[in-house]
């Protein structure tokens, strides 16, 4: 009877206690086993990190042994598969990657920053409640959708205003990417601006400055490391973005920074090769790993910088 009431009062504890040993050697072993299992789950993230480095290095080592870093980073001709004379200079892919990323940042940084300032300093709570989820919705749109929109709508619209704009071009891919990244910049910058102590705002107001002056001279400068972290992360995202450029940038590996021209980014090259047959160990197979290794190093550097900057922000907020 007493047993039954105990089960009724606290069913979860009562039931589970039956099959989980609490005392004795069995219990200690059971606990050890669980902890080991959980630690194993935790270790996956380190294993995956090492796995990425090992796989990229292993699959591209033949390529770099054959071509050499000098040609890879020094030449502006990328004809790894087509034609008689193969040339393995990565600059055509790099120039398109840098151009689209620069355009994307030129869109995303000002818009994202202004949106962040609006949300944290000006917007009424009710407006905030609409705009924040709407930006989250934008952030959740799969990149393939932006690619579709860029090629079917944005490029034709831009062609009315920009003569000589080619059907696939770096400009509309970059612009689309910028719109895609705005929510990231806005949300991270808003966090940084929100973390600025209220006392600084009050001090600025007490000195007789208006809201604009407070934002320009006090709030944005003190949130700067967080905003810089957001921008670096946005740059890393732009460099690694794939489907928009694979669809809308034209897929032509040519060296140049003219946004009206077609181009092929590092990511778009990988997609282009992967769409066809790429036998394991073939030259095409090796090149995509070499390009991916470069991509990984570039984004890793930016992620580390961003991580450092945001840690500095957190340290400053605590101080």
């Amino acid at each position: 009877m007493s047993d039954e009431t105990a089960t009724m009062a606290a069913p979860a504890v009562g039931r589970a206690a039956l099959h989980t040993p609490t005392r004795g050697r069995a219990a200690r072993w059971y606990e050890r086993l669980i902890e080991l299992g959980l630690a194993g789950c935790g270790m996956t993230s380190i294993v995956v990190t090492i796995g990425i480095v090992v796989i990229l290095a292993h699959e591209s080592k033949d390529f770099f042994a054959h071509v050499g870093l000098g040609e890879f980073l020094g030449s502006t001709k990328w004809t790894p598969i087509i034609g008689d004379h193969h040339s393995y200079g990565v600059w055509p892919l790099l120039s398109a990657t840098l151009t689209t990323a620069a355009i994307a940042l030129a869109v995303a940084i000002p818009l994202g920053l202004l949106a962040a300032i609006y949300l944290s300093e000006y917007a009424a709570p009710r407006t905030r409640k609409i705009i924040k989820p709407a930006l989250e919705l934008l952030a959740g749109v799969p990149t393939i959708v932006f690619g579709y929109f860029a090629i079917t709508t944005l490029t034709p619209a831009l062609r009315d205003y920009i003569p000589g704009l080619s059907g696939g071009n770096l400009l509309s891919a970059g612009l689309m990417m910028g719109v895609m990244i705005v929510p990231l910049v806005a949300s991270l910058s808003e966090d940084a601006i929100y973390a600025v102590p209220q006392s600084l705002r009050e001090a600025a107001a007490g000195l007789g400055g208006g809201a604009f002056e407070a934002i320009r001279k006090v709030i944005v400068p003190s949130a700067w490391s967080g905003i810089a972290a957001a921008i670096t992360l946005a740059a890393s995202r732009a460099i690694g973005e794939t489907m928009i450029v694979a669809i809308a940038a034209g897929n032509e590996a040519r060296f140049g920074f003219d946004p009206r021209q077609p181009g092929q980014t590092a990511t778009a090259y990988i997609v282009d090769i992967s769409k066809g047959e790429t036998p394991h160990g073939s030259v095409a197979y090796q090149t995509i790993f070499a390009v991916a290794a470069m991509l990984f190093v570039m984004t890793l550097i930016m992620n580390v910088i961003s991580h450092r900057l945001s840690r500095r922000l957190r340290a400053a907020a605590r101080a």
């Binding site: 993230s45 380190i46 995956v48 990190t49 796995g51 990425i52 796989i55 990229l56 292993h58 699959e59 992360l233 890393s236 995202r237 460099i239 690694g240 973005e241 794939t242 990511t267 990988i270 997609v271 992967s274 995509i288 790993f289 991916a292 991509l295 990984f296 984004t299 890793l300 930016m302 992620n303 580390v304 961003s306 991580h307």
Partner: peptide
Amino acid sequence: AIANLAGVPSIVYGMLGLGL
């Protein structure tokens, strides 16, 4: 490791999957 993995472009995960 987790912070780093969160920033790795999705296509690089594809390369990991392809090789591994």
